[in-house]
Design a protein around this nucleic acid. Structure first.
Length: 306
DNA sequence: TTCAATGTTTAGAC
DNA sequence: GGTCTAAACATTGA
């Protein structure tokens, strides 16, 4: 899953590669992934210049010259792949894990104990949306799970989305006062669930909530109201600290993530608890456990996270 | 066949 | 009505 640092990394790379380009053609292979319906979706985009690219939460926002906006959410397995007119491949998102190479257009890469195939064939079976720019370059949207989506919205729609979302943890709005207000408002909810609620704080998914709680030595099951002020301050500091660290590593959490440049992200080895069930805790002599909270897996050390 | 992945939404309990 | 939890949803592959 591309989390906030990955989306931010992708945003920066897209800004360098496609801002200023004009959309010439739009091909939608899976209608349900776009809104409005494909014919209107395409009409809204064709002849539009991409003025700039922003990020809100885990969404990419393309500012279009006509005043509307293209929103992209990659969800779990979405990837954006840019191919310049001159050829050569630039990847952002997740490649498709396989055991062995299937076709001549795939290139095997090894990452730790996993093998992944980079599929150089485009479009491939997971390509659902294709943009062609007037200079002949292309942007492909691939998504194995088809959980991601794209939509064109106007200023009013964008305003509504901004209002429905919580605080950006890397913005000036993220202050200890604002953070405390949120925590105090829902004293009975488990702290992990509060951190992951996008109406309160955005961009903190399962991975980073686990890591931030480990960083501040707080048990994910603790009711928010039972957390002492000093611990709360610690947690408040841990969230942006971890997000920024991931960002500095090119942003990644998952083994399979690749940047738009094709370089693997570098954060995965730095995860302390996520995906480390049964391993020795890196902070004490305990063992990392995995337990469900609200249908999600919480990874934590019961020995040092109280 | 069942389960796991995750952000978002919905239904229902208190 | 507000708060909170659990389940459902999209889809695919192991």
């Amino acid at each position: 899953m591309p989390e906030l640092p990955e989306v931010e990394t992708l945003k920066r790379e897209l800004e360098k590669t496609i801002s200023g380009k004009i959309i010439k053609q739009v091909e939608v292979k899976v209608p349900k992934l776009v809104s409005p319906a494909p014919s209107l979706f395409s009409k809204e985009l064709i002849n539009q210049k991409i003025n700039s690219i922003r990020r809100r939460s885990k969404m990419l926002i393309f500012d279009l010259s006509g005043g509307k906006f293209l929103l992209v959410h990659l969800k779990m397995t979405g990837q954006l792949i840019f191919v310049p007119k001159s050829g050569g491949l630039i990847v952002g998102g997740h490649p498709n894990p396989v055991v062995k190479q299937n076709t001549a257009t795939e290139k095997l890469i090894l990452r730790g104990k996993f093998k992944f195939a980079l599929n150089f064939e485009l479009p491939n079976k997971y390509t659902h949306i294709i943009f062609t720019f007037t200079d002949g370059s292309r942007l492909y949207y691939n998504d194995l799970r088809k959980f991601g989506w794209m939509k064109v919205i106007d200023t009013a729609g964008l305003k509504k989305i901004h209002e429905e979302l919580g605080i950006e943890p890397l913005s000036a709005d993220y202050t200890f006062d604002n953070f405390k207000t949120i925590i105090k408002r829902y004293p009975n909810r488990k702290i992990k669930q509060l951190l992951m609620d996008p109406a309160l704080i955005v961009g903190v998914g399962n991975i980073y909530s686990d890591e931030a709680l480990f960083c501040s030595r707080i048990n994910p099951f603790r009711p928010a109201g039972k957390i002492k002020p000093a611990e709360l301050k610690n947690l408040f500091n841990c969230i942006p600290k971890i997000l920024k660290l991931a960002l500095s590593k090119g942003g990644t959490s998952a083994d399979t993530y690749l940047q738009l440049s094709g370089q693997p992200g570098g954060f995965s080895p730095l995860l302390k608890v996520y995906g480390r069930e049964g391993e020795k805790c890196q902070g004490c002599k305990g063992v990392v456990e995995r337990k469900k909270i609200g249908g999600r897996s919480a990874h934590f050390c019961p020995s040092c996270q109280k």
